[in-house]
Nucleic acid binder design. Structure first.
Lengths: 216, 216
DNA sequence: ATTATCTATAGATCTATAGATAATGC
DNA sequence: ATTATCTATAGATCTATAGATAATGC
């Protein structure tokens, strides 16, 4: 996958656009129904791309949908990078991540639906967000802020709770999302070993400003 | 669904057996590949049942797979009932549930794989385990053992963590499962508001004996 | 007589590819 | 000249049903 090489000429740009159209269509389908048995014809139509073009880019539906999930995960990670860099207290980072995720169910619903359906199976992946989360958790333990525990177990706890927050946002839109996220973040910080008072305070620190970047 | 009426005569028994064969085949397929696009023909073969029989019991694959998930959830709940009745401290109940679930990935792998793939979408269902878990969490809050919080948020936290424990057991079979479950249970109890020392103690209480019931 | 299962099959749908068409590189 | 896209289609596969077969109820 030459995802590193940016398109040089018009050929490559057009090719990349067709591929992106297919990936975006797959993301929409994943978010709306999750039905990966949908026909390649329907996918191509959704992408507004000739039917045969599919085979210029992917060998199977599985391959396409995997690419779509990877694409969503990457966008999720990018948003985290944009919005959360500069926070170096691991506890605050966890809390901010929870609250940012809750807000993203409103601003990036399609992306979050994909995560909702496919996130669990990437929790212990060695690419994407998982390794970074692991590192932050280990950092928190090393600095004495978190109670020592097997890193994979801590990752499970935090990741599972985050996914269930996303599920909660979609399953119970009647609840106040930001409040739920804050409460859950506070709970997660207690889980990681922060004293109750600290957990309460850290979970309620204001999120960093969106800077000049658009809407979130 | 006349799931309440037990089969009276040989006709009804045979009919129920055919249906069960289809459901069990669907459970195996869900556990092994999760590929719900598999053909009805392949399902019928797997169940060792004539192809046309499928339509005597289900109108679509979706209907069959939903029944298979419901079947798995029910078995999960039944096992909890058998093994955890008699525990009335909500904190101990949560901890025992975590450790029992971890063990079940070894003793009931197929069942737990189904849960792994489909559990999240049933977290806030109004049938099955969710309502009971909600009740226990509310009980814990009422008795002062747990810190007060919106019940659905507590359910998200506990359920999400449990699902990620199941994921962890399958993704990292190299880790000691019972130890991971105990550690995670301890963390969840802290999350719910137990003091660290209490959480540690409760999470390590011995599980109730399997009584005369077979192997777990 | 009734009911469920099984086998066979028509018709629909889907996949993968071949060949024509259109756009750009050099 | 090269390359990607698009259209058309052959062949494979899948679904849903019709009708035959087998088993039980009464």
């Amino acid at each position: 996958m030459p995802s590193s090489a940016p398109p040089r000429n018009r050929f490559e740009r057009r090719r990349a656009e067709t591929r992106q159209a297919l990936v975006r269509a797959a993301r929409r389908i994943l978010a709306e129904t999750g039905d990966t048995a949908v026909s390649i014809q329907a996918i191509a139509e959704r992408a507004d791309v000739g039917f045969g073009s599919f085979y210029n880019h992917f060998e199977s539906k599985t391959e396409l949908f995997d690419a779509a999930v990877a694409d969503a995960l990457e966008e999720f990670g990018r948003t985290f990078d944009e919005r959360l860099t500069g926070i170096d207290d691991p506890a605050e980072l966890v809390a901010a991540g929870f609250r940012l995720s809750a807000r993203m169910t409103g601003s990036h619903p399609e992306l979050m639906q994909v995560l909702r359906r496919r996130g669990l199976e990437h929790l212990h992946s060695d690419r994407g967000l998982a390794p970074r989360a692991l590192r932050d958790l280990e950092l928190g333990v090393a600095s004495g802020r978190f109670t020592p525990v097997e890193p994979a177990v801590a990752l499970s706890a935090v990741g599972g709770t985050l996914l269930s927050l996303i599920e909660l946002r979609f399953a119970r839109p009647d609840l106040d999302g930001d409040e739920a996220a804050t409460d859950l973040a506070e709970m997660v910080l207690r889980m990681l070993g922060l004293p109750a008072a600290d957990a309460r305070e850290v979970a309620r620190r204001p999120l960093p400003d969106p800077d000049r970047s658009g809407s979130i």
